[in-house]
């Protein structure tokens, strides 16, 4: 009868994969360097650092807002040389950079729209009309800290949770 009861019996679970080959660099603007940092970031990545909880994409890079004046720069690691060292050099004096590639486990849920179970499970409003492609939220689910962003091309949702909690987080993700 109720909408929620229906979706519980639905078996069409979305595909969940873990992103493992990604270099993640945490960038935090040095004091009063924001303007210069923005300029260098734009010329380096081809996109501006998002000033609000958004994720932006450019070839080979995804930049996720991670708090005021902070971002996660995500790049495919592949067989590239030291991605982190390069960023550290580029932003020397403008931003503090830390390699956090191993801090979080990142899971991608392939879904163009959020399932009712996913919407119900989150303490933030994940409704299709509210949490738009490119939106980012730092929040918690089931007592676990998590960052979630909706891919700018609306093909899915990424969840980043502290690595040491990832077993419990996967338990949770498996239920949505």
């Amino acid at each position: 009868m109720s909408e929620s009861a229906q979706s519980l019996t639905a078996k069409n679970r979305p595909v969940i994969s873990e992103l493992t080959d990604v270099s993640v660099t945490h960038l935090a603007a040095r004091r009063e360097m924001r303007t210069s940092l923005d300029d260098v970031a734009r010329s380096t990545f081809g996109v501006a650092l998002p000033a609000t909880p958004r994720v932006v994409e450019a070839p080979g890079v995804m930049i996720v807002w991670a708090g005021p004046d902070q971002w996660l720069v995500m790049q495919q690691r592949g067989d590239k040389a030291d991605i982190f060292a390069e960023l550290a050099k580029t932003f020397n004096g403008l931003a503090s950079v830390v390699d956090v590639s191993d801090s979080r486990a990142i899971f991608r849920v392939a879904a163009s729209r959020p399932s009712d179970a996913l919407v119900r499970s989150m303490g933030i409003d994940l409704d299709d009309s509210v949490f738009r492609p490119g939106d980012v939220a730092i929040t918690h689910v089931s007592h676990l800290g998590v960052m979630v962003w909706r891919l700018p091309d609306a093909t899915g949702y990424d969840f980043a949770c502290p690595r040491t909690y990832s077993r419990d987080f996967l338990d949770w993700l498996g239920k949505i």
Binding site: H26, A28, A29, R30, R31, E32, S96, V98, D99, V100, S101, D102, S103, R104, P162, R163, T164
Partner: peptide, 14 residues
């Protein structure tokens, strides 16, 4: 707030 300091929690990184 006038100090130029950035803080990164990295407990899970290492």
């Amino acid at each position: 707030p006038e100090l130029d300091v950035q803080i990164f929690p990295v407990s899970d990184q290492w």
